[in-house]
Design a protein around this nucleic acid. Structure first.
Lengths: 121, 121
DNA sequence: CGTTCATATGTTTATTTGCTCATATATTAG
DNA sequence: CTAATATATGAGCAAATAAACATATGAACG
């Protein structure tokens, strides 16, 4: 194996291991965050924050192709972050719940507060 | 162009466009979230949540190679999510600030609450 | 000094992923 | 039914990336 260490931290390790959740949860968490890890999706989510919108409008707004938007909306749908509602030819998308807003908001806050901290360096 | 739509939503579009932040912010947001978008990094962050730890301990804990851990720690360092402190041969890592905790916590809450909601479907 | 332990880093590889292009489905109108 | 509009989807490609592997740096110690 790579670097089996010799200095002792078995006590700490055992203690931390106890508190760690099951491996699966880390994968799920990463999966959740990876949805927000793309500028296009973040923008779509942010737009939907303001108002429910049809694919057509989201396409114009994003400046991407309709296909690209549809693909991303699918990702968002399958993650239960947005919900779709058909009305005639159009399909209207909206945020699924308040959680999405909170997660985005957390990120915004972190970014802005970071900036304040970093001015002090 | 792809699908220049004909039905009207220019009013809504203009309104939403006004509220959208500059493009750059979406990229930054996505950048921030993409750090949490990997199971290994989430696990490392979660472990550091419990306690400051040296690379050696983190390597054992994660089950990955020392190299892999070091690479990920670098990513976390460069994003200002963790800070490093040298003490003799070892380097100890710790969470940079409370924000990291909050962001992870948000994710956890979303996952668990989602599960409750989904039982009703 | 040279050796050993702890960590960092450059390179390569395999996988993932976001987009484009072409095409399919769905709804409404004629 | 056929045409037109709105949206969805499958395939392929190019860019991003996480891990392996080899190697470099850095600290303590003889």
């Amino acid at each position: 194996m790579n670097g089996k260490p010799s200095h002792d931290h078995s006590g700490l390790l055992a203690q931390v291991r106890e508190k760690l959740p099951r491996e699966e949860l880390f994968r799920e968490l990463a999966g959740l965050y990876s949805i927000f890890a793309d500028p296009t999706r973040v923008k779509l989510l942010y737009a939907l924050w303001e108002s429910e919108m049809c694919v057509c409008a989201l396409t114009e707004l994003s400046g991407l192709s309709q296909s690209a938007v549809s693909h991303q909306l699918r990702t968002l749908r399958e993650s239960n972050l947005v919900k779709a509602r058909r009305e005639g030819k159009q399909v209207y998308y909206a945020l699924a719940d308040a959680h999405v807003r909170m997660i985005i908001e957390m990120g915004f806050e972190h970014l802005t507060e970071d900036r304040q901290e970093e001015t002090g360096r």
